[in-house]
Design a protein around this nucleic acid. Structure first.
Length: 715
RNA sequence: AGCGCGGUGGGGUAGCUAGGUUGUGCCCACAGGGCUCAUAACCCUGGGAUCGGUGGUUCGAAUCCACCCCGCGCUACCA
């Protein structure tokens, strides 16, 4: 589909900067983009793959506020954190940058001015909610209030969850700002800028219709927008954190984050060009028609990549190329429920890396990539895939082959002799799989590619089984064993080359074991028939490529992070219950009675619901040292306390003044909840809460028994 | 409500755009057997499904059409 093209430009939807992303984010944008880029590079194509964080907008501001940091600093920190995670996942972007850069500011402003000159920008008067307390304009998502339609009291500004009516923030009765929790809003009205999508509709439509090969969702969502009629879309916002609008009358406003984010694809390419020492290098990717451009996105992102961003480029009329292919993914669910960053449901990329090697995730995630419809991550299936496909099929084949070569041929690839029917068949299968996988990859069919390659790995085991080299060796048919193992070794190499885009770390390891010196990431798929030369020495130190995941481990993880599949496994294997295990332990000790005593007695008053370990983990308990204390004026109980929590100083307010004098607290170490949402108590801001035992009237502040560094975690 | 996606043996999934030896393929689970080189891995065989329902088109439908039922998602700043 892209044979006439000379080079490829790959973009992955820019992950929003404010939180660490979950596996759903990874699977529909970053990971497939990386895999496709790796595949193309192996094929010897000229590729530029760019990505970066999407930095601007209200959510960043709010998250920064919550973290008690200046936005710029917060965003920088989160950018670095995300970048580091993606590197550890082996994501091979030519540049992973961000949208808060000089390049993006300049380009966004430039494109806007072109749109303005060309008459595609219109001005309109808009009303919006303003929180007088936060001194901030409130996007619809940041307001809750009573629904004017059904009177539901917790309707969000954009939509009522109860009656599902689509709302405007200003429609809400008794609107409350979710940032400060106060109902202190007023309606502001002001001029805003809109991009006139309607007058660009014809050209957008033409472009969409000329690309029938896109995934179904991409088309249906794009077409439904067009069918409903393209209305002007606001591109200005009354916030501080963003790219300033270079137009008189609007200089106190910034661009809507979705205006500048996709422009980031181009500005990051520009940054990349500068780093290459040729500042114009980006132009051939963006301004020449023989580049094939692919956007990797989730389905929610379709409108921005098929309507608004193309509209920007078309309207600016500055010769920027539009995408050739929009690879839109559906959703990945977590154990039948939605992944949710805000509700902390699911597995997040940083946690994933702590649990298992990146290739385990890369493989499983692409195997279940939601290419056709929504799919489900389950712990149980994750284990099945890793153990079954990676360890038992792939790992086992390679391991048994290399073990034989070491044992019988002193670690040297033996020479193949006369070929029999099965030998020829498996060699043909190897060539075929490289061709078929290549055809599927060209169509960006990731799951099919994986299935094709693993079917071949199964064939390899069948071949090994049918040739019985262990039996031949006993029968003294050394030549025959040599032939079998030579062919198996070629298959190992072939599998490594074919799987390199998907599981690059393992593929490298296989090349290391084979002691092949060439760079695996430059081996094209049609090189898989290429023989490793006779007598080539392989490594003598073998170890399993994929340690297996124990059932017990997966049950524990499933229970810890939440998941029905683990509960189901536990039902089938009740002996593996982690909680029971703890109970069993005392039996082996000499004094089981003592253990029993330790069990907390359920006091009648302790009727609170059980919480999961996960819920408990959400509390960020830290040790802090009290720096200064002063009473809050006009109150009997409250003290304003400044504490040092290692990374920063915090102000907290505590109701302990009746039992503690300010002087006796200074210098003491205490325990605080560091991630409690900020609150104002008697007008004084409190960013945390100290822990104290409360048995009215006595209050005892908790303090660590030994001195520990400030910021130490408490659990 | 509208729109989108899906409903295929116990679980998962492919096949459906161009209807034919298709109730067929694949993975997992299950049963039996083989092998014993390998990470208790590998290989073979087998059982198991009115292909959501009803009606239609057709010589013939999982595949096309109509209506209905069920699940999920979206309705525009969640990938």
């Amino acid at each position: 589909m892209s044979d006439k093209k000379k080079r490829y430009l790959i973009t992955s939807a820019l992950p929003y900067v404010n939180t660490v992303k979950h596996l759903g984010n990874l699977v529909s944008t970053l990971l497939p983009a990386d895999i496709y880029a790796r595949y193309l590079r192996q094929r010897g194509e000229e590729v530029l793959a760019v990505c970066g964080t999407d930095d601007h907008g209200t959510p960043s501001e709010v998250s920064a506020l919550e973290a008690g940091m200046p936005v710029e600093e917060f965003v920088e920190q989160m950018f670095n954190k995300q970048k580091d995670i993606y590197e550890r996942f082996g994501l091979s972007f030519d540049l992973f940058s961000r949208t808060h850069t000089a390049e993006n500011t300049e380009l966004t402003q430039h494109l806007f001015l072109k749109l303005y000159e060309n008459g595609f920008i219109i001005e309109k008067e808009v009303q919006s909610l303003h929180c007088k307390n936060c001194k901030r304009n409130l996007p619809d998502r940041y307001v809750v209030g009573t629904c004017p339609n059904c009177k539901y009291e917790h309707a969000r500004g954009d939509q009522c969850e109860n009656c599902s009516k689509v709302l405007d923030g200003i429609d809400l009765i008794n609107p409350v700002c979710i940032i400060c929790g106060k109902s202190n809003t007023e309606i502001h009205s002001g001029k805003h800028l809109f991009i006139d999508l309607g007058s660009l509709e014809g050209r957008i439509k033409e472009w969409i219709n000329s690309h029938k090969d896109w995934p179904k969702t991409a088309h249906s969502i794009a077409n439904s927008w067009i069918r409903d009629g393209l209305r002007p879309r606001s591109i200005s916002r009354d916030i501080k954190w963003g790219i300033p609008i270079p137009l008189d009358g609007y200089r106190d406003k910034v661009f809507y984050v979705w205006f500048d984010a996709p422009i980031g694809y181009i500005s990051i390419s520009m940054e990349w060009a500068k780093q290459q020492g040729d500042p114009d290098l980006w132009k051939k990717f963006w301004k020449e028609t023989d580049t094939y451009i692919i956007n990797f996105i989730g389905k929610d992102n379709v409108p921005f990549h098929t309507i608004t961003f193309p509209a920007t480029l078309i309207g600016a009329d500055d010769d920027f190329a539009l995408a050739d292919y929009v690879k839109a993914f559906q959703w990945l669910n977590y154990e039948k429920t939605k992944f949710s960053s805000s509700k902390k449901v699911g597995i997040f990329t940083d946690t994933a890396l702590e649990l298992f090697p990146p290739d385990y995730w890369r493989y499983y995630l692409m195997k279940i990539a939601p290419e056709r419809h929504d799919t489900d991550f389950t712990w149980s299936e994750f284990r099945d895939s890793v153990n079954g496909d990676l360890a038992d099929i792939l790992g086992n084949f390679i391991h048994r082959t290399l073990t034989f070569i070491n044992r019988y041929f002193d670690g040297k690839i033996p020479k193949a002799n006369a070929l029999e029917k099965e030998d020829k068949a498996i060699i043909k299968a190897l060539i075929d799989v490289s061709k078929n996988a290549d055809l599927e990859m060209r169509k960006l069919e990731f799951q099919r590619t994986i299935l094709t390659i693993f079917d071949f790995a199964r064939d390899c085991n069948k071949y090994f089984q049918s040739k019985k080299p262990w039996a031949d060796w006993k029968d003294n048919k050394k030549d025959r064993v040599a032939t079998t193992l030579n062919i198996c070794a070629q298959c190992c190499r072939g599998l490594a080359v074919l799987l390199a885009p998907f599981i690059p770390f393992t593929a490298e390891k296989i090349f290391d074991l084979l002691q092949l010196k060439e760079d695996i990431h430059k081996q094209s798929w049609n090189s898989v028939g290429k023989n490793i030369s006779d007598n080539h020495s392989i490594s003598k130190e073998l170890e399993p490529l994929f340690p297996k995941i124990e059932l017990e481990q997966i049950i524990e993880l499933g229970l810890k992070w939440g998941g029905e599949s683990a509960k189901e496994l536990l039902k089938q294997n009740p002996q593996l219950d982690p909680s029971k295990k703890v109970k069993n332990k005392p039996k082996t000790q000499s004094k089981p009675k003592k253990a029993k005593k330790k069990q907390p007695k359920v006091d009648e008053k302790m009727t609170k619901e059980l919480v999961s370990f996960k819920d408990f983990q959400q509390l960020d308990l830290r040790v802090a040292t009290i720096k200064s204390v002063e009473p809050v004026e006009g109150t009997k109980k409250l003290l304003k306390i400044i504490v040092d929590i290692g990374t920063e100083e915090r102000q907290i307010v505590a109701g302990v003044a009746e039992r503690y004098k300010p002087d006796e607290l200074v210098g003491k170490q205490i325990v605080i909840i560091a991630n409690l949402e900020p609150a104002k108590i008697r007008g004084v801001e409190s960013n945390g809460m100290l822990l104290a035992a409360d048995s009215d009237p006595e209050i005892s502040i908790l303090t660590p028994m030994r001195k520990v560094p400030n910021g130490s975690k408490v659990r």
